[in-house]
């Protein structure tokens, strides 16, 4: 599934879509954490319409579980990553990250140059 991110300044990133299908609007922010993606999904400080961008590869590879939630539901509107793992491998994993995000209708945009996106956001907003 093809997916596109368009920013208000005209920059466009094209990549692969996972999770829910559709169109989502919001403010694009980034987080450079190497791990803890589930905590980022469910952090209520993302309560405005945010699309969180993570440049670290292999987001999703340890799945999700009920104990690591920061809140009862995810607060991001979308997820933008370099590489998204559709398989999970961890003894604590209860649900694959893609299923978890799809359950809450959160789209994933992957396989874009997320480092370029982060630098762009850092410099221009």
């Amino acid at each position: 599934m093809q997916a596109t991110l368009a920013l208000e300044d005209g920059r466009v990133f094209r990549g692969k879509g996972y999770g829910a299908k559709g169109e989502w609007h919001g403010e694009v922010v980034f987080n450079t954490s190497i791990t803890g993606y589930q905590e980022i999904f469910t952090d209520p400080s993302y309560l405005r319409p945010d699309c969180s961008s993570q440049p670290i590869p292999e987001i999703g590879n340890y799945g999700t579980n009920a104990e690591d939630n920061e809140a009862t539901r995810p607060y991001i509107e979308g997820l933008i990553v370099r590489e998204f793992s559709r398989a999970s491998s961890n003894w604590r994993s209860q649900q694959v990250a893609e299923e978890y995000l799809e359950q809450f209708k959160i789209p994933v945009l992957a396989e874009i140059d997320s480092r370029a996106l982060v630098r762009h956001l850092r410099d221009t907003g």
Binding site: T4, L5, E8, W24, H25, P49, P107, L121, T124
Partner: peptide, 26 residues
């Protein structure tokens, strides 16, 4: 920065226009 993620629309001009029409956060 405001942005749009879409799996439906591929026309970048339309998407950029949509991104610019999003009300600012606050």
């Amino acid at each position: 920065m405001r942005g749009v993620v879409s799996t439906l629309e591929t026309d970048s001009d339309k998407l950029v226009a949509k991104a610019r029409s999003i009300p600012r956060w606050m």
